[in-house]
């Protein structure tokens, strides 16, 4: 499987081969409940959710050229939206997901509308600030979010571990598929165009700000879906879910997997979540030091990620 997805990042591979590899990987993942115990399955479901969010960030950073430092805010928006829906409206996981996606779109429109008007460093700072403000908002709006203690008493989804795993896998597969189709479609090409040469795109009659905003909305909606899965898995969400550390973790996944691909960050996401869990008893709080070291090493040694193409990188 690893072999096939490794080549999945290669542009020369035909569309058919890529689809076959995708289908094969999906079948293999769908068969996991027959191979793994409940604990590992639960872990894998969480890994897939983070992988999807990493892929959405890669869409934004690599494909859209919009380096966000506050992507975890979308995780939080999706998770809180799904959690509040579960608590107050309906136990239906699909409806919770839809509400989470809608909330992600709204949040993306609201913050992205300002963010895409900034360039370069201002975009970095603005997204970092939005991430931190989202944490503060979640912490301070005690009545709605439960403040520091998090959103407690979310009723369980009612799905057993295996069914929930399949539900999570389906959401991740569809979300990832949407990202790939949008990237390769006309909108994705205009987004890439806005990244490569804004002036030319504007001269061709494209509404560049709108195109950039579309990239933020797509990435935000998909990330919110991943956030909803995180909440549904644990039936819990707290401000720690959207801290800067989580944005950094998502960025490490993107750097490790290769920012020019979508599949790379997805795999790196699953891998890092599994790694973190496996080493958590041994490392404890030292994990954050490991995370920082990984980050630094990635920046120094892996400008294209493990699965990235070895092509000259656009600034």
């Amino acid at each position: 499987m690893r072999e096939s997805v490794m080549r999945g990042g290669d542009a020369r591979m035909s569309r058919l081969t890529r689809r076959l590899a995708f289908a094969a990987a999906l079948v293999l993942l769908a068969a996991m409940p027959y191979m793994l115990d409940a604990y590992r399955l639960d872990l894998l479901a969480g890994g897939l959710a983070y992988g999807l969010m990493a892929a959405s960030l890669a869409f934004l950073v690599g494909h859209g050229g919009l380096p966000s430092l506050g992507h975890a805010a979308f995780l939080g928006v999706g998770a809180y939206a799904a959690g509040l829906t579960a608590k107050h409206v309906t136990p239906n996981v699909a409806l919770q997901l839809l509400v989470a996606i809608a909330a992600g779109v709204l949040f993306a429109l609201l913050t992205g509308w300002f963010a895409v008007r900034t360039r370069g460093f201002f975009f970095l700072m603005f997204t970092l600030a939005i991430g931190e403000i989202a944490v503060q908002a979640a912490t301070r709006s005690t009545r709605v979010t439960g403040g520091d203690n998090g959103l407690a008493d979310i009723p369980p989804t009612g799905l057993d571990v295996v069914t929930f795993y399949w539900w999570a896998l389906a959401v991740v597969a569809v979300g990832f598929g949407v990202l790939v189709l949008l990237r390769d479609g006309p909108l994705g090409r205009s987004i890439a165009g806005a990244r490569e040469n804004e002036a030319r795109m504007a001269a061709l009659g494209y509404h560049v700000t709108g195109v950039r905003l579309a990239a933020v909305v797509i990435a935000g909606a998909v990330c919110a879906a991943g956030g909803a899965l995180v909440e549904q898995k644990d039936t819990f969400v707290a401000p720690t879910h959207l801290e800067i550390g989580v944005s950094v973790l998502l960025l490490i996944m993107v750097l490790l997997g290769g920012r020019q691909t979508l599949i790379g960050p997805l795999i790196a996401g699953v891998g890092l979540i599994v790694l973190r869990s496996v080493t958590s008893t041994a490392l404890g709080e030292l994990w954050l030091l490991v995370e920082g070291a990984l980050f630094v090493i990635c920046v120094y040694l892996l400008p294209n990620g493990l699965l990235g193409r070895r092509r000259a990188q656009a600034a």
Binding site: L124, G245, V248, L251, L288, L289, G292, F295, V296, V299
Partner: peptide, 27 residues
């Protein structure tokens, strides 16, 4: 070493160093 690698990589490096430094202090 990152002078030629663009602004994003430099900013990301400082962020990685920030995590290392602050986690070191907390330890």
């Amino acid at each position: 070493p990152l002078t030629r690698r663009g602004h994003l990589d430099q900013a990301l490096l400082t962020m990685g160093l920030a995590i290392l430094l602050s986690e070191f202090l907390l330890q």
